[in-house]
Write a protein that binds this DNA or RNA. Structure first.
Lengths: 219, 219
DNA sequence: GTCTATAGCTTGATAGAC
DNA sequence: GTCTATCAAGCTATAGAC
């Protein structure tokens, strides 16, 4: 299936991405991946060394695209802001917007990636074995950017806000099907347009929550 | 190890809970679970039928406790509110507070459960196979409660707000170790006291975000 | 309720021809 | 870069004695 259109290495990554997302890393065998990719079992070890190497390649190729878009948007904001504070909603949008657009219009692969990375990010094993290193530099830049967007708030408040943002974002792009079960199908976890319209003001208001307390006390 | 203190069935659940949380459902063998529990391989099938039955038993025994506490707090709120709206912060606290207290003071098992359930909730396979049914009735009650706490907001806004709350909560109790990597150990994902103090106002402000827009337009 | 023993199959990884 | 063949180990589940 799908032989010849793309090269073996890419086909293996595409199929692995989908199956890892559906069943988890240990829930799929290399035999199943290679069979569905129309390749031979030995090709995984030839191209990626190990099963784990295949997983890392799958994640790395998406993170590169996502990180570059996020950083470019953030640099645009920084250039426009000069010495002033960054607009909070824009920083939220610079972080989540690229993921939203790639998940919406980037093809089926990005949907699979979203489900895969939500499982990986909630797994201590994968994080402690260094898989999140690919993502850390950009995350650190955005924590600093959120501090610049909220100069009146303590570092502690910004750090926890970023933590809550990550949980919200990961769950959003996992598209688990949970919300359709809870609402009888009236709302859909794949409706990213509706979710994105709500998530930016939701998170921005959360970030500002304690800032509002400070302002109340000062007035 | 640990033989005789508790019965075999409980020991198997305790060890499975920890190992499933550490390595995922397919990342652990029944041999490893039974060995670490000091039991024989065949005891899993005797007590739980299948490996999957063991997972469901592990999750069900915690959900029962958690759901009962959440519902009791919500019923107290409803009794105190009479015909008026429910206080938003109190509804958030009724949902997240019991989980927070059990995870903080309920022993190591609740920590393992938090990590396990965060992986399961982000896995489409486990949700579609009905594992989330255990949790749905209480979740539906709380969506209705959030609507009662925010009478000016549309159902749509409340539903997405609850969706964001779930992502935040799951990630919070997964204690992935991510935030210590991002802050050089200055903040810790196991510091639930600090996180809980921030998460309630954060989520309440997020829920109110669009309500504020409505009020601005009306004034 | 606990144990041993084992059936029947699948796993990740590799060796070596082409 | 691709293929076949295979290794050594692991797996879930069950049968049946006690």
């Amino acid at each position: 299936m799908a032989r010849g259109r793309t090269d073996t290495k890419t086909r293996l990554m595409d199929v692995a991405e989908k199956l890892f997302a559906d069943h988890g890393f240990d829930g799929v065998s290399l035999r199943r991946i290679t069979t569905e990719a129309g390749a031979q079992l030995a090709m995984v070890n030839y191209h990626f060394g190990t099963k784990r190497g295949l997983l890392e390649a799958v994640i790395a190729r998406r993170i590169e695209v996502l990180s570059e878009q996020r950083v470019r948007l953030l640099e645009d904001l920084e250039a426009a802001a000069g010495d002033g504070p960054l607009p909070l909603e824009d920083v939220v949008a610079a972080f989540i917007g690229p993921y939203y657009r790639l998940s919406s219009n980037g093809g089926r692969g990005w949907k699979n990636y979203g489900r895969l990375v939500a499982q990986g990010a909630n797994s201590r094993a994968l994080i402690q074995h260094g898989l999140s290193n690919l993502f850390d530099p950009v995350a650190k830049r955005f924590i600093a950017a959120f501090q610049r967007a909220l100069p009146e708030r303590s570092e502690e408040q910004v750090v926890w806000g970023f933590h809550f943002l990550m949980g919200t974002m990961l769950y959003m792009f996992a598209e688990t099907g949970r919300i359709e079960k809870l609402t009888g199908g009236k709302y859909r976890s794949g409706d990213l347009d509706a979710m994105y319209a709500h998530v930016v003001p939701f998170l921005a208001a959360g970030f500002r929550a304690c800032e509002a307390q400070v302002q109340r006390q000062a007035s």
